[in-house]
Amino acid sequence: MLIEIKDDVIWAKHLKASPALYETVVGLAPEETISLSVDGIVGKWARMRSGADGRPTLGLKPVGAMATVWKRLQERRGEKVHLTWPDDDTDALLRLADMTFDEWYSAEDEEAFGDLRPI
């Protein structure tokens, strides 16, 4: 699906084109993570914490190296990028992103290799 880069987070309401993804995001516990591919880059996203008044905040914030990638993408606000989610067997490799160790990623690696794009 295509989403527009328009905020520091991805709001659940912008994911309604994929009902399964929308329902998954809404059903996540605060701070629970999922992997998404945005503009061809797979990264972790966490459900936002509830507001001070206790109401749920239905959005995803980028986590770890994906926060750096998303910050760079903010320079392209208003543009649309591809977003995919491993919701079926054809995207099984994306699910592996949740099974890797965060220690394997570093700011140094992101700086050195973050600009690389898949072919």
Rank of each mutant, 00 (worst) to 15 (best):
M1K: 03
L2R: 12
I3D: 04
E4Q: 15
E4H: 06
K6W: 02
D8I: 15
V9T: 13
I10S: 02
W11K: 11
W11I: 12
A12Q: 06
K13I: 14
H14G: 04
H14T: 13
H14E: 13
L15H: 02
K16D: 05
K16T: 13
A17L: 07
S18Y: 01
S18V: 09
P19S: 02
P19A: 02
A20T: 14
A20H: 07
Y22F: 15
E23K: 11
E23F: 09
T24H: 10
T24P: 01
T24I: 08
T24V: 10
V25C: 06
V25P: 01
V26N: 05
A29L: 14
A29Q: 13
A29C: 08
P30T: 06
P30M: 03
E31R: 12
E31A: 09
E32R: 09
T33A: 02
I34N: 00
S35G: 07
L36C: 07
S37V: 15
V38H: 00
V38W: 00
D39M: 07
D39I: 08
G43W: 00
G43T: 03
K44G: 02
A46Y: 00
A46W: 00
S50W: 06
G51M: 10
G51N: 13
A52P: 08
A52S: 11
G54L: 07
G54F: 04
G54Q: 09
R55P: 03
L58T: 03
G59I: 08
K61A: 14
P62R: 01
P62C: 06
M66I: 01
M66R: 00
M66Q: 03
A67V: 04
A67R: 09
T68Y: 01
V69Y: 06
R72S: 15
R72W: 13
L73W: 08
Q74V: 14
Q74P: 04
E75M: 15
R76T: 15
R76N: 15
R76W: 11
R77A: 15
R77F: 14
E79Y: 05
V81K: 03
V81P: 03
V81W: 01
H82K: 11
L83C: 06
T84M: 06
T84E: 05
T84Q: 04
W85L: 09
P86M: 05
D88L: 06
D89W: 05
D89L: 11
D89R: 10
T90H: 02
T90A: 10
T90R: 05
A92D: 08
L93A: 09
R95M: 10
A97K: 01
A97G: 12
A97P: 01
M99A: 14
T100I: 15
F101M: 07
F101C: 07
F101W: 09
D102Q: 05
D102P: 03
D102A: 05
D102N: 07
S106P: 05
A107K: 13
A107M: 13
E108K: 12
D109S: 08
D109F: 04
D109M: 09
D109C: 05
E110H: 05
E111I: 12
A112V: 11
A112R: 13
A112E: 12
F113M: 13
D115K: 10
D115V: 11
P118T: 07
I119S: 03
